[in-house]
Write a protein that binds this DNA or RNA. Structure first.
Lengths: 137, 137
DNA sequence: AATATATATTTTAATAATTGAAATATATAT
DNA sequence: ATATATATTTCAATTATTAAAATATATATT
């Protein structure tokens, strides 16, 4: 492969990667439209939903922040009655953040703006996308 | 479609979307490995590369921040001699941020960690991914 | 059982990043 | 000329994040 081809590939990668990021950002913006939640707050809610709650440490890892920042993030969502802290019985040092009833409803409602057909399409395509991406990451 | 199917689709969408975000985050982390640049700084450099520079306003829009924050972001990259400000002659109110020679080299070098085969694969797959995503966004 | 060490989270003071508003500079319209 | 609009920077105030100490619980060692 020529040096020129290589440069060209690098450009394509940059361009396409940025497009993917833009699109997934746009998706979150679409979801959070009209909500008074930051992008990260919304992502955390989704994350809590699909993981059935997360330990503080897991949240810190996920967002690459310090434990102190997690405490503050969760305090805010707790004040909004979207998240609650549950101490684990097996290891009482651990605090698990879980969605409140209210939080569950909020998350479900985010998707009401999409038609059923749209939801079907999105589920199919996003799955395909991940399958594709798996080949390189 | 049953109510249950719908809930199931929503769950798939959340899960797959979060996976995509994770993967593109991972990619940026991989790129910035060993670099003393934040994720956003790195993304800005790539963005400047593929757009041949950007106006301050465009940077603000892209990152959804205020103009003041853009000034501060660019000050830092300017201090690192990765970015320079160029006043536009057609409209001297406008400042365009462009990569310095140094910045260009830095961006190119980020991709040296990948083999040529890997670059080819990534370019192909990321293009396919965008084509797929185009169907829903 | 008592003690030491390790782990998980919170608290707090200091630092860094971001905002909103005013200031500066240039453009455009009347 | 003058007024209005746009682009960026400056700056004080707010908000978010960190690093380190404090608190609480667990596990290992003697």
């Amino acid at each position: 492969m020529s040096k020129d081809d290589q440069l060209h590939h690098v450009e394509i990668i940059m361009r396409e990667m940025l497009k993917i990021q833009q699109k997934s950002k746009m998706f979150v913006e679409l979801l959070s439209e009209g909500e008074s939640l930051s992008q990260n707050q919304l992502i955390l809610l989704l994350q809590l939903k699909i993981n059935d709650g997360m330990k503080a440490t897991e949240v810190a890892d996920f967002f690459s922040v310090t434990p102190g920042a997690v405490t503050s993030m969760c305090d805010k969502l707790e004040k909004l009655d979207l998240v609650q802290r549950v101490r684990e019985n097996e290891d009482r040092r651990v605090v698990k953040m879980v969605l409140t009833k209210n939080g569950e409803i909020k998350v479900q409602n985010l998707f009401l703006k999409f038609s059923q057909d749209k939801l079907t399409d999105m589920a199919k395509i996003l799955s395909d996308v991940n399958q594709l991406m798996q080949e390189i990451f």
